[in-house]
C-alpha cells in the first residue's frame, strides 16, 4: 500500500512535468496548444537522435534540444499562432490540432512505428533504485523526475513574478493592446513565452523517454494527461498544476487497483469530477446543473 502511494506521487511528478508547458502557454498566451503532446514526442525523437545516434551524453543532448525547441516555439508563435489568434478564439485550436496531425504522421513516416526508449542513454540509472525502510524500492529516475517538476515549476514561477521578462509576459497576457502602448514588443514577448513553453517540453520528453517507451502517435495520450492535470488543478499558479497532476495520478492508481483496465478510465473520471465541481463554483447543485437557474449560464 505504501509503495503504491509513493508510486502514485512519483507518477504525479511525471504528469506535472508534462503539464507545466501546456499550463504556462494557456495561462500566459491564452492558447491551449493541441500540438503540445506531439511536440514533446518530437523532442524525444530529437534526444534519441542526438544521444543514441551521435552518442552525445544525455545532458548535452537536452541542452541542444532546449535551444532547438525554443527556436521552434518562437517560429510557431510568429508564423502560426500570431496569425491564428487574429482570427478569433477558434483558429489557434484548429491550427494547433492540424499541426499535431502533421507531426504525428510525419514522425511515423520518418521514424517508423517502432517504440523507442531513452533508458539506454543513462545506463545503470534506469534500473537503480533507492531503498526505503520496509523493503520499499523506489526507482531513482522517477524521483529525479518529481524533483525536476518542482524545479521547473519554481523556475517558471520565479521568472513570471520576479524578472522583467516575466512582468512583460504577464502584461502581454493580460492586455496585449495596453502592453504595446507601454512600449513592450508584444510579438517578441509572446514568441519568447512560447519558446519557453516548448523548451520545458524537452524536460517532459526526457521524463517520458526514461519512464517508458514511446511511438510516433504517443503525443495525444501525453496531451490528454497534461490537459487533465491542468483542468483538475485549475489555473492561477503553476503549483496548482502539480496538485492537479497528483490528483490525476492518485485517481488512475486507485482505479487500476479496482479494475486491471481501469487506469485511464480513473483519470478521465477525475477530470469529469473536476469539471462538475468547477461548474458551479465548488458546490454540487443539481438544479443549476440542469440549467434551471439563470445564475449558472456560462461564464
Amino acid at each position: 500500500m505504501t509503495s503504491q502511494l509513493i508510486n502514485a506521487i512519483l507518477l504525479g511528478g511525471y504528469y506535472a512535468v508534462l503539464a507545466t508547458g501546456l499550463a504556462f502557454m494557456y495561462s500566459v498566451m491564452n492558447v491551449i496548444n493541441l500540438a503540445h503532446g506531439a511536440l514533446i514526442v518530437l523532442s524525444a525523437y530529437g534526444l534519441w537522435l542526438l544521444g543514441g545516434n551521435l552518442g552525445l551524453p544525455l545532458p548535452v543532448a537536452m541542452a541542444i534540444m532546449v535551444v532547438v525547441m525554443f527556436a521552434v516555439g518562437m517560429f510557431l508563435q510568429r508564423v502560426v499562432l500570431s496569425r491564428a489568434s487574429g482570427g478569433g478564439e477558434l483558429l489557434p485550436i484548429l491550427a494547433t490540432f492540424g499541426i499535431s496531425i502533421i507531426l504525428d504522421n510525419l514522425m511515423f513516416q520518418v521514424f517508423g512505428a517502432d517504440s523507442l526508449s531513452l533508458a539506454p542513454l543513462v545506463g545503470d540509472l534506469s534500473w537503480a533504485s533507492f531503498e526505503l525502510p520496509g523493503f520499499i524500492f523506489v526507482g531513482k529516475t522517477s524521483v529525479y523526475i518529481l524533483l525536476a517538476a518542482i524545479v521547473v515549476i519554481a523556475g517558471l514561477e520565479w521568472l513570471l513574478r520576479r524578472t522583467a521578462l516575466g512582468h512583460r509576459i504577464q502584461a502581454v497576457s493580460q492586455d496585449r493592446a495596453t502592453a504595446a502602448l507601454l512600449g513592450i514588443d508584444t510579438q517578441r514577448t509572446a514568441a519568447i513565452a512560447t519558446g519557453i513553453a516548448l523548451a520545458t517540453g524537452v524536460i517532459a520528453a526526457t521524463a517520458m523517454g526514461l519512464r517508458s517507451a514511446w511511438g510516433p502517435y504517443g503525443g495525444s495520450a501525453q496531451l490528454l494527461f497534461a490537459f487533465e492535470a491542468v483542468v483538475i488543478g485549475g489555473l492561477g499558479s503553476l503549483w496548482r498544476v502539480l496538485a492537479g497532476a497528483m490528483v490525476l495520478a492518485f485517481a488512475q492508481s486507485l482505479a487500476a487497483m479496482i479494475h486491471p483496465q481501469g487506469f485511464l478510465i480513473g483519470g478521465h473520471l477525475a477530470f469529469l469530477a473536476a469539471v462538475f465541481i468547477r461548474l458551479r463554483g465548488g458546490s454540487f447543485d443539481l438544479k443549476s446543473l440542469l440549467g434551471l437557474t439563470r445564475k449558472g449560464a456560462t461564464a
Binding site: 494557456y26 492558447v31 491551449i32 493541441l34 478564439e89 477558434l90 489557434p92 485550436i93 490540432f97 495525444s220 496531451l223 490528454l224 490537459f227 487533465e228 483542468v231 483496465q261 485511464l264 478510465i265 478521465h268 473520471l269 477530470f271 469529469l272 469539471v275 462538475f276 468547477r278 461548474l279 446543473l289 440542469l290 440549467g291 449558472g296 456560462t298 461564464a299
Partner: peptide
C-alpha cells in the same frame, strides 16, 4: 451538453476528446 458547454474554447475542445476516449475505453471493456 449539461456540463461540457460550461467549458471555454480550448477546454471544451479537448474535454470532448477526453469524453470520447472514456467512451472508447468503456466500449473496449
Amino acid at each position: 451538453s449539461l456540463f461540457m458547454l460550461s467549458l471555454k474554447d480550448g477546454e471544451f475542445a479537448i474535454g470532448m476528446w477526453v469524453l470520447s476516449s472514456l467512451a472508447h475505453l468503456c466500449v473496449n471493456l
